[in-house]
Design a protein around this nucleic acid. Structure first.
Length: 888
RNA sequence: AGGCUCGUAGCUCAGUUGGUUAGAGCACUGCUUUGACAUGGCAGGGGUCAGCGGUUCAAAUCCGCUCGAGCCUACCA
């Protein structure tokens, strides 16, 4: 009857779809994810790297967030006040693009709507479609504290942004100026250096004749962007270049424009590149801009904000910049001014969001002086306050920090934090303040004359504050007090500059503290061909589909198992079979335990029972070795997640299922009531502990099973992690049981080689030896049930009509009913001999080497001697056996 | 151009400070539905650890070079 009950509640196969979603709701409703700022417990904090509100879950997110969840769940179970703060990022350009594209289907532009109406649209879009990814994280099982969810444009976070801007401005670290910046002619906004993606491109180097005004010939100028020559205001050479030294100061007549420009000298010019003469276009090249400033060159803008040639481009006005290039070349050629064209490879910058070729563009922008901010961030890494795993990212971080450049933070977008700078239209006075000033502080003009800067801030200007702005900073909130600075950060190395480095700088500058102790950089997920997962390639499987097919736990298991430290991962959905199979294996192991325990009215106990058997002690020893290893792997200096999950897998599958469950059947189906009870208690307790250890990695299946264990109540996830007890680890027991296992394998091996079906029992005679005697005496009954043996006995010598196998150098014989297949058996033994000889040869040579004996540590030498001795004995026995068969 | 990382079984990957008979999962071969599980069990085949050279008593592991893959940084027009 109870059999029926269990079968009903525990089906033969684990079906994640049945439990996962409901279980998550239960956890959430019970407040299991919530962290208490007033708790006395040690805080453990992670802030999520906020995904874009427009984002959908990718396999990359899966890995990243699973790792965070593992840490959070583990530390929660270790009794710490674990706080995982979730949220999203407003993603200026990306979000604006999405909404603009949607409007475009209705043939509306944002300009049709105007700023205010457009922003209303974006907010509506955000409320409706934004943050899908956070729902998807719930599906994954992430135990974020959703009551603390934040968005970078929330009121509080927006106030923090303003506050920081004002402070930096007041401290003289924010300035506005006309500089060459990266401009996307499609998004029509400035971009930071980090948003410019260089791509190697096969271009050309055009060599153009620039004639001198006085008719005394010409010089050659080489360029990759001939269309910009229309804005040239000089040609530069190196002051020491003998070819040009005497010509410096002469006038050149700029072709096509007939503008008179000077030949100037500047150290910057590389004599060995091209012709050694460089055209200067200060309005369209960052280097020319710098040189131009030194020489007071005029800045002539010839390309407009859309990438179209403007009125300064003469006859080329109105042409797109790439069309203009062709037209300029054609015109030069016609006038015989094109000397030659060389193929030339160069890195062309592209817009991170829309892939449009970036245009260096002269415009008025806001910048942050970064050098002073970098100093404490550099120190933090160098003195160990901040650590990276893998550590090699530290040098990447340092290199960037030490060569840091000012950060262009203004964006010509509408969606974002509008810059809190106000200009008086009467006197042009600029005021920077958190709130709109009521009158001009200089000329006293009233509010109507004061206008806020129309630009918004780079999204990263809000996310670099994320680690503390989310907790209420600048208010001194209990949350901030309890959970800041945070403990760990888990993110991808691709945003080390965008985010990690800047967050460290912001942490020090605004709070005086490093915002986290350690950063773990995850692997990059690729497809099986090694390509990055991307939407355009269509090679990125949808994690939701994977979870539908295999379950969230299976996906989590697989991603973590597959991802070693800092190495890229090649992933395909089918690999989740390993996770699914593992969840199923665990399910069935639990099912077995529960079915057998059911009638005994037992519940899981605090301690193991007295009078443990050797094999009980063995599984407990294995369990505690596993616990120790897992805990070691999860330390911040290690973060060896794949190692941790693998050792649990091996414990559950190999030790617990393959051996201990099989061993326990002997007791469970036997008539010794005490033994039965003891075994059941050990099974329950080990299962209970295994579920706890595995829980941070595979939360759903473990919680589901744990709650079915008699005696358990509440939630596993808020329970405690098993405490490692070194006294329960016994190498001696593991050794003893290991010999028994070897013995069983040898018998199974013999059975297989003689094709004895599992159902047929055999007789085994073990030739007396220390090992054999101990195994037969201590584990005789077990060997019988595990290896399908009917009669097991010790003999003085090998009997006739038996197959022979070895355990170390002990001989184990299996009686064969009927004739031995001589040929087959001979082949098997010969193969065995060959293998053993090969193995021995590998190490035996060492002993003949005097140097080895003298220099190698004594214990190593001893070990080799012992091994060789074992091989020798094995070979002796194998030869003997071979002769015997041969003579049949 | 510089820097970093990687190259281990057909595939995806482990292998912590040099000393293991070089491992796992999938795939493959044979046996197997015995009362947890065929998403299973038992047994097995398969690798000159990219190549060459060096250090060492000892190298998949440390060093150098070559070849191959990838990533990051860089203002050579």
């Amino acid at each position: 009857m109870s059999e029926e009950k269990l079968t009903a509640s525990l089906p033969k196969a684990y079906d994640p779809a049945v439990t996962e979603q409901d279980l998550y709701r239960e956890w959430e409703e019970a407040g299991c994810f919530k962290a208490d700022p007033l708790s006395e417990k040690t805080p453990y904090t992670i802030v999520i790297p906020p995904p874009n509100v427009t984002g959908k879950l990718t396999v990359g997110h899966v890995l990243n967030n699973t790792l965070q969840d593992i840490l959070i769940r583990y530390h929660r179970m270790k009794g710490e006040e674990a706080f995982w703060l979730p949220g999203t990022d407003h993603a200026g350009i990306a979000t604006q693009n999405v909404v603009e594209r949607e409007l475009a289907t209705k043939k509306i532009t944002r300009h049709d709507l105007g700023r205010e109406k457009f922003l209303e649209h974006v907010w509506n879009w955000k409320e409706k479609y934004g943050g899908i990814i956070l729902k998807q994280l719930r599906r994954l099982g992430c135990s974020c504290d959703w009551t603390a969810e934040r968005f970078t444009m929330d009121e509080g976070l927006s106030d923090a942004v303003k506050k920081c801007f004002v402070k930096l401005y007041d401290d003289g670290l924010i300035y506005k100026g006309k500089y060459i910046i990266n401009w996307c002619p499609r998004c029509k906004t400035a971009l930071s250096d980090e948003e410019k993606i260089p791509q190697d491109t096969k271009g050309s180097l055009w060599h153009i004749k620039y004639p001198f005004k006085d008719g005394s010939g010409y010089l050659i100028v080489a360029t990759t962007r001939p269309e910009t020559m229309l804005g040239d205001t000089a040609v530069a050479v190196h002051p020491d270049d003998p070819r040009y030294k005497d010509l410096i100061g002469k006038s050149i007549l700029l072709p096509l424009m007939n503008r008179e420009i000077p030949l100037i000298a500047d150290e910057y010019v590389d004599k060995d590149f091209g012709s050694g003469a460089v055209k200067m276009t200060p309005a369209h090249d960052p280097n020319d801009f710098e040189i131009g400033k030194r020489h007071n060159l005029e800045q002539i803008v010839v390309i407009d904000e859309s990438g179209i040639m403007n009125e300064n481009a003469g006859q080329f006005k109105g042409l797109d910049r790439f069309k203009a290039r062709e037209a300029v070349i054609a015109a030069l050629e016609e006038q015989g001014l094109l000397e030659k064209i060389e193929p030339h490879e160069l890195a062309v910058g592209h817009c991170e969001r829309c892939k449009t070729v970036i245009e260096p563009y002269l415009s008025e922008q806001w910048f942050v002086k970064m050098k002073p901010l970098a100093e404490p961030a550099i120190k933090a890494y160098k003195d160990g306050t901040l650590s990276f795993v893998p550590d090699r990212w530290g040098s990447v971080y340092l290199h960037w920090m030490e060569n840091i450049r000012d950060w262009c933070i203004s964006r010509q977008l509408w969606w974002g934090h509008q810059i809190p700078a106000y200009t008086c239209s009467k006197c042009s006075h600029v005021q920077v303040a958190e709130n709109a000033p009521e009158k001009c502080s200089k000329c006293g003009a009233s509010q109507e004359f004061i206008e806020q800067d129309s630009d918004v801030l780079d999204t990263w200007f809000s996310s670099w504050l994320w680690s503390f702005s989310t907790m209420g900073w600048p208010e001194k909130t209990p949350m901030l007090d309890k959970f800041y600075p945070t403990t760990a950060l888990v993110t991808g190395p691709d945003i080390i500059f965008f985010w990690v480095a800047r967050m460290v700088m912001a942490g020090y500058y605004f709070t005086g503290e490093c915002p986290f102790d350690s950063v773990y950089f995850t692997s990059i997920i690729r497809d099986l061909k090694g390509r990055k997962m991307s939407k355009s390639l269509g090679n990125s499987p949808d994690p939701i589909d994977i979870m539908d097919d295999y379950g969230a736990d299976a996906l989590r298991y697989t991603m973590v198992a597959l991802a070693p430290i800092g190495q890229d991962v090649r992933f395909a959905a089918e690999q989740c079979e390993m996770g699914r199979n593992f969840a199923n294996k665990l399910w069935n192991a639990a099912r077995f335990v529960l079915m057998n325990v059911e009638d005994m009215e037992l519940s899981v106990l605090e301690d193991y029972p007295e009078n443990l058997s050797e094999t009980d002690r063995w599984i407990i020893s294995r369990l505690h070795s596993t616990i120790a290893h897992v805990e070691h792997c999860l330390k911040p200096t290690e973060y060896r997640f794949n190692d941790a999950i693998k050792s649990i897998y091996e414990f559950v599958w190999n030790d617990f299922c393959d051996w201990y469950l099989e061993i326990s059947k002997k007791a469970l189906y036997g008539s010794d009531a005490d033994l039965k009870r003891n075994t059941a208690l050990v099974l329950l307790k080990v299962l209970d502990s295994a579920l706890k250890v595995l829980h941070p990695f595979m939360p759903f299946v473990t919680e589901t099973l744990w709650r079915k264990i008699p005696g358990n109540s509440g939630f596993l996830m808020t329970g405690s992690f098993p405490e490692y007890d070194a006294n329960l680890v016994s190498p001696e027991t593991e050794e003893k049981v290991g010999k028994m296992m070897q013995f069983v394998r040898t018998v199974r091996n013999l059975r297989a080689s003689a094709n004895v079906p599992p159902s047929r029992k055999v007789t085994v005679r073990a030739v007396a030896s220390d090992l054999n005697n101990a195994v037969v005496e201590n584990f005789g009954d077990l060997v019988k049930s595990l290896a399908g043996v009917e009669h097991l006995e010790i003999t003085d010598s090998k009997p006739e009509g038996h197959l022979v196998g070895l355990v170390d150098s002990s001989v184990v014989c299996m009686e064969l009913k009927g004739l031995i297949d001589v040929e087959k058996e001979l082949a098997r033994v010969e193969k065995e001999i060959e293998n053993t000889e090969k193995s021995m040869a590998k190490i035996a040579g060492k002993l003949e080497n005097k140097q080895f004996i003298e220099r190698a540590p004594a214990d190593i030498v001893e070990k080799v001697k012992e091994d060789v001795e074992v091989y020798k004995q094995q070979l002796e026995k194998l030869y003997e056996y071979k002769n015997e068969i041969g003579s049949i």
